[in-house]
């Protein structure tokens, strides 16, 4: 297949999947909260998100006169570009990958680090107090969870001996890494929640105290970029969990690509149900939790895995 066509198809495929994730979230949250959710546009309300996107495209592209204009426009684009770019290295099936990099895992971590710039710049450039407070909290939180997010994945790298995501999936033919790397999986899942700024880690946009946090001053499609970016981010973290710990496309009977989608959807639903059930802690507790518990845990997991791998190699 022509690589340009493949890239375009992949990007639009991800965007449509993210729109579907928004529908899942709205319907499932409605179920949790005993209401219907969107059910008017199309069968089961499936087309609601498409209608929303078309509507928001025709809204004013407003840039506040008090904002730092250039940075204000670039910030929402950064989050969209980084989360979409991460999908370049994720294998959706055997041979279905935009770029099988040898350092795919590092590329994913680099892109998720760059996403911090988006919220930091948005909070600063808005020149609004709520936005600034939200932005600072977001940076503190994402930067804290960044460190052990990488370390929690090193157990997988150790067992595979490679940063390539295709090699990592191939190494799980006998046993999915969620069994030997259970601690790594839990730590990565929590870090993933924090990186996508989902409940219980949504302090940067805690609506009861900060209005909308770093995107208070955003409207129109620039706001939609943050909103869509969040759901593309959920899809990204879910598919990374599947690739790293749940065997990627591996599975019996069904075609490999379908397996990948089914497993990813499972974790997307878990993300949504977590949002429906957990409260939000204080931000100093949150950052302290990361440094005091998660960081040593990830490090201990790495050292233990290293010892076991070397002992078995003899």
């Amino acid at each position: 297949m022509n690589p340009v066509l493949f890239a375009i198809a992949l990007v639009f495929g991800i965007l449509f999947f993210a729109a579907f994730v928004i529908w899942i979230e709205r319907r499932f949250l409605a179920l949790v909260q005993e209401r219907y959710g969107p059910n008017r546009v199309g069968p089961l309300g499936l087309v609601q998100v498409i209608a929303d996107i078309i509507k928001i495209l025709t809204k004013e592209n407003w840039i506040p006169p008090f904002a730092d204009k250039g940075v204000f426009v670039i910030a929402p684009m950064i989050i969209m570009v980084t989360v979409l770019a991460s999908f370049a290295v994720i294998p959706l099936g055997p041979g279905i990958v935009a770029s099988d990099l040898d350092v795919g895992l590092l590329f994913f971590l680099a892109m998720s680090s760059l996403a911090v710039y988006s919220v930091a710049l948005a909070g600063w450039a808005s020149n609004s107090k709520f936005a600034l407070l939200g932005g600072i909290r977001a940076v503190g939180q994402m930067v804290s969870y960044e460190v052990f997010m990488g370390i929690s994945l090193l157990g997988v790298v150790l067992q595979t001996g490679s940063f390539s995501l295709v090699a990592i999936i191939e190494a799980q033919r006998r046993l999915w890494f969620c069994v030997p790397q259970f601690v790594g999986f839990v730590v990565f899942f929590i870090a993933g929640l924090a990186e996508t700024r989902r409940i219980p880690f949504d302090l940067p946009e805690a609506e009861s105290e900060l209005v909308a946090g770093y995107h208070t001053e955003y409207s129109g499609f620039k706001f939609a970029m943050f909103y869509l970016g969040e759901y593309v981010g959920i899809t990204l973290i879910s598919s990374m969990i599947v690739v790293l710990f749940f065997g990627g496309w591996l599975g019996p009977w069904l075609p490999p690509f379908l397996w990948f989608v089914v497993k990813t959807l499972f974790f997307v639903v878990v993300f949504v149900l977590i949002r429906g059930s957990l409260p939000r802690p204080r931000y100093d507790q949150l950052i302290g939790f990361g440094w005091k518990l998660m960081f040593p845990l990830a490090l201990a997991n790495l050292v233990a895995t290293g010892g076991i791998v070397l002992a078995l190699a003899r």
């Binding site: 990007v11 639009f12 495209l57 570009v81 979409l84 290295v89 935009a98 129109g220």
Partner: peptide, 26 residues
């Protein structure tokens, strides 16, 4: 598809699509 060339191509496509949407909404 392999390597840095296809990655660069993909990044260009991503930036182009995001930029196009921003121009469209403007």
């Amino acid at each position: 598809m392999n390597g840095l060339g296809s990655l660069a191509l993909y990044l260009v496509v991503v930036v182009a699509i995001v930029g196009f949407i921003m121009v469209l909404t403007h």
